[in-house]
């Protein structure tokens, strides 16, 4: 069954990706694709995941960027501080292709602001000294 067929009620079964448990979550969709109920999730994260996934799916993005001036490291790991729209994932990675960091870098340092116009900052997740 597809999601959100206009006017028709349907169920959509998803695998929650918020944690490694991978709950099988069922979303009951009402008329117009409105979420009526979420079941099968073991925690509230599953509920919010399922609601977002059928309306506006989001993902966090992790990658690495080169770092200049570090003793050992050639790259630092980075992540979006929160999730971005799923459709913007490739734009985020492309925007980071031109970004370089400069040592010293601490975990949590902002590496790029408002990446690819998402309003989300990218921070370091590894150190370079």
């Amino acid at each position: 069954m597809g999601a959100g067929g206009a006017g028709e009620k349907s169920d959509k079964v998803l695998t929650c990706i918020r944690c490694p448990r991978g709950c099988r979550v069922t979303v009951a969709l009402g008329a117009g694709g409105k979420v009526e109920a979420v079941s099968g999730n073991a925690c509230p994260r599953g509920d919010s995941y399922a609601r977002a996934e059928v309306t506006a799916p989001v993902r966090s993005v992790t990658t690495t960027v080169p770092v200049d001036g570090a003793r050992d490291e050639g790259r630092v790991a980075v992540k979006t501080v929160r999730e971005v729209p799923k459709g913007a994932v490739l734009d985020v990675v492309r925007a980071l292709a031109d970004v370089r960091a400069t040592a010293p870098v601490e975990i949590g340092d902002v590496i790029a602001r408002d990446v690819a116009g998402t309003g989300v900052d990218v921070v370091a997740t590894s150190r370079a000294r």
Binding site: T62, A77, K79, S126
Partner: peptide
């Protein structure tokens, strides 16, 4: 392992491997 998914049990938050 620069992806996230580590630490939910230990720290209650989703961390990357290096973190």
């Amino acid at each position: 392992c620069v992806h996230s998914g580590f630490g939910l049990v230990t720290f209650g938050e989703e961390l990357t491997g290096p973190e």
